[in-house]
Write a protein that binds this DNA or RNA. Structure first.
Lengths: 153, 153
DNA sequence: CACATAGGTTGTATTTACCAACCTATCTCT
DNA sequence: AGAGATAGGTTGGTAAATACAACCTATGTG
């Protein structure tokens, strides 16, 4: 089966590549949805965003709210409130940035680190379960694809 | 360098499989973090969830609200309200399921299809950019992996 | 020294989604 | 056939997340 395409403006025909692209979009979206709904199970106190914030702070050895906002594409007010909640939980400590007294350096407290590690472990368990019947090679390949995909930011 | 593992409860040593699992976690989460912020750009009328709902309806040639709720792990009330909004926009039509009069079959209207295609095109542009240098085979493989991953509910 | 700017906080409104209660149609078991 | 039990869907109430705007303070720059 084939068709004519008469102008430059018409969409390309639906190829298998397009089908696959569409599928990738849909599946990634479904994943995002589910990740959000499962986030509660990670740790009773940590939303997905709060968890990710702690994660980035840890990875960078402390960072400013503005960094978090930029990284996660969140408004600074949102970060401020999330940070406030984490502080109230005793999960993070702030110190004035010695180099620039406008800013603060945010770090996980020991309790915050502990909670974050627990959430990590929970998540690892869930993933293991889901990928239990996958070959090592397939898992490695999927990981490689995702890294490649995300690195193209 | 090597270590002893003395009890069944200790974590397994870091194998390549574990490395890959950790990577998949991180990369999928990185995607989930940012998906939300990109959602607004898709279409003035369509939230990410609304768009995804239309997409799945289309893919399946019409489906019930319960299917959508299950697929996206959303509460049925959420689906009901999103469907109501889409209907008010003239983007979807409902018909009573002839096989089971409790349910409804939801389908995009022509306008809904149009809006969805526009949103899809927006997203496709972004994806194309990212996946421009991928082989068709790799894209198809990634799609297959994601489908497999998501179907393991 | 005056003004523009960056990091953060707070007020306000919107969106999103969950839970619970409820309705109707269907199914199952006797 | 009749009596629950159950599934799909709607509506009311509510909580959380987030964006936007206004504002404060510290910093940088002419």
């Amino acid at each position: 089966m084939w068709m004519y395409y008469t102008t430059m403006n018409e969409k390309a025909p639906s190829t298998s590549r397009d089908e696959a692209l569409r599928s990738i979009q849909r599946e990634l979206t479904a994943f995002a949805r589910r990740a959000r709904s499962r986030a509660t199970e990670l740790h009773p106190d940590l939303s997905l965003v709060a968890f990710s914030m702690l994660d980035l702070m840890t990875e960078r050895g402390g960072c400013r709210g503005a960094d978090l906002a930029a990284y996660f594409m969140l408004d600074k007010s949102t970060v401020s409130r999330q940070a406030g909640a984490l502080e109230k939980l005793g999960y993070l400590v702030r110190e004035t940035d010695p180099d620039d007294h406008r800013g603060q350096i945010l770090r996980p407290s020991p309790a915050g680190l502990k909670a974050m590690r627990e959430a990590h472990e929970q998540r690892r368990i869930a993933f293991l379960d889901r990928l239990a019947d996958w070959d090592d090679a397939d898992i490695a390949q999927l990981a490689a694809y995702l890294e490649r995909y995300n690195s193209a930011v």
